[in-house]
Write a protein that binds this DNA or RNA. Structure first.
Length: 105
DNA sequence: GGACTGACTCGGT
DNA sequence: AACCGAGCCAGTC
């Protein structure tokens, strides 16, 4: 059943779980997260982070081309540098920093 | 139940 | 590099 009380939906929780699992020094695009939770809309991932992002390492999620949303750029870049993510010209090198969750075993 | 809104993405100009 | 336009879909009203 569904409670009438508001909280993160099951979908939102799935998004937050993925983002929470991104290791320091790595990043994912909104579209990557969408794919991992099983939707084809990258936008809705942004919508979840907009509402609940404060609870997770939201700065590890950015656009597919490695750029940040305008209103977040300054803070996000600072946090990414603190994570030692390679940033060049305000852009993350996705080829180098994209989290590749390859089951090692 | 319909219309709108975006922390998006891709292909085409 | 910089615009489009279309597709996307959970929220919100």
């Amino acid at each position: 059943v569904v409670s009438h009380r508001d909280g993160p939906s099951e979908f939102a929780r799935a998004v937050l779980d993925v983002v929470d699992a991104i290791p320091r020094g790595r990043v994912l695009s909104y579209g990557d997260v969408a794919e991992l939770v099983g939707v084809r809309s990258a936008r809705v991932v942004g919508a979840v982070l907009s509402r609940y992002g404060v609870e997770v390492p939201w700065h590890r999620v950015l656009r597919a081309d490695g750029s940040c949303a305008r209103h977040l750029a300054e803070r996000q870049l600072a946090l990414l540098r603190r994570d030692r993510v390679p940033v060049r010209d305000g852009r993350v090198d996705m080829r180098a920093a994209r989290w590749d969750r390859a089951p090692s075993s």
